[in-house]
């Protein structure tokens, strides 16, 4: 009998603290599969971020340092510059990466830091209780946009992948979702590519993952899952926005 699916080895055998149906667990698993696939568990140093993903260090069987809110790409820069032989990744939510840490991610990308970035976009601040994020959809009600996000008041949801793909330092940029088996397959592939980008010294590998926050969306897990295709994907189109095929840095 052959094993078709099992817990990845670099994922610690423990329960996630995430809410029922929260996709953080799914994305953690995909990242762990990539760590196993590329056999980098023993050389990985991750920079954890702030938000629901802060407990990353409890779930991955790897070395992890915690970063201040938004600063994970800078922390990762320090790690990677001082240890170019290590595999370095960051895992950040939308508040962390697209609001308070905008400068850090853009400049790490622009410097072509050889790190892998997993960007979790669930259109809301999760851990602090569902406040409006830079990625919150127009009309979406949150605890700080009680009348729905209004572009005149709050601007438009920010598309990070498109922005970062413009930068020469980015070797790979893709947006994926984890709401269906088909999307999951592509998400897995994109994360693998982002790992390979670092291993092959091709600059930053960046993957934005559209996912749910059932609790703060006020929806059941299945309904929340359906919202991704219905509302998020039309505004945040899936796809590979950039892929360098070789060491074609100028």
């Amino acid at each position: 009998m052959k094993t078709v699916f099992e817990r990845p080895q670099s994922l610690v055998d423990t329960s996630f603290h995430f809410c029922p149906g929260c996709h953080h667990g799914t994305i953690h698993r995909l990242v762990a599969e990539a760590i196993d696939e590329y056999k980098v568990r023993e050389t990985t140093i991750a920079a954890a971020s702030v938000g629901c993903s802060v407990f990353l260090y409890d779930y991955f069987d790897i070395d992890v340092v915690e970063s201040p809110h938004g600063r994970a790409p800078a922390v990762a820069t320090g790690i990677k510059r001082a240890n170019p032989d290590k595999f370095v990744f960051v895992y950040q939510g939308d508040g962390d990466l697209a609001a308070i840490g905008t400068a850090e991610i853009i400049h790490a990308a622009n410097r072509g830091e050889n790190i892998t970035v997993i960007f979790v976009n669930n259109t809301v601040y999760g851990m602090t209780g569902g406040q409006m994020a830079p990625t919150t959809m127009l009309g979406q009600r949150t605890t700080t946009s009680p009348y729905g996000r209004d572009f005149a008041q709050d601007g438009y949801p920010i598309r990070m992948t498109e922005m970062l793909a413009q930068l020469e330092g980015v070797g790979y940029a893709a947006r994926v979702a984890v709401d269906s088996p088909a999307h999951l397959g592509k998400a897995r592939k994109a994360i693998m590519k982002a790992f390979a980008t670092q291993i092959e010294n091709r600059g930053m590998g960046f993957v934005e993952v559209l996912c749910t926050c059932p609790t703060n969306w006020g929806m059941g897990p299945i309904e929340a899952n359906k919202r991704i295709a219905a509302e998020m994907i039309p505004y945040f189109p899936l796809g590979v926005y950039k892929e360098r095929t070789g060491s074609d840095f100028m």
Partner: peptide
């Protein structure tokens, strides 16, 4: 590394120091 801000610089130090 010339960082984009002092905030980034101190966090780069945090990262390198952690190793």
């Amino acid at each position: 590394v010339q960082a984009e801000s002092e905030i980034a610089a101190i966090n780069m130090l945090l990262g390198a120091g952690s190793t």
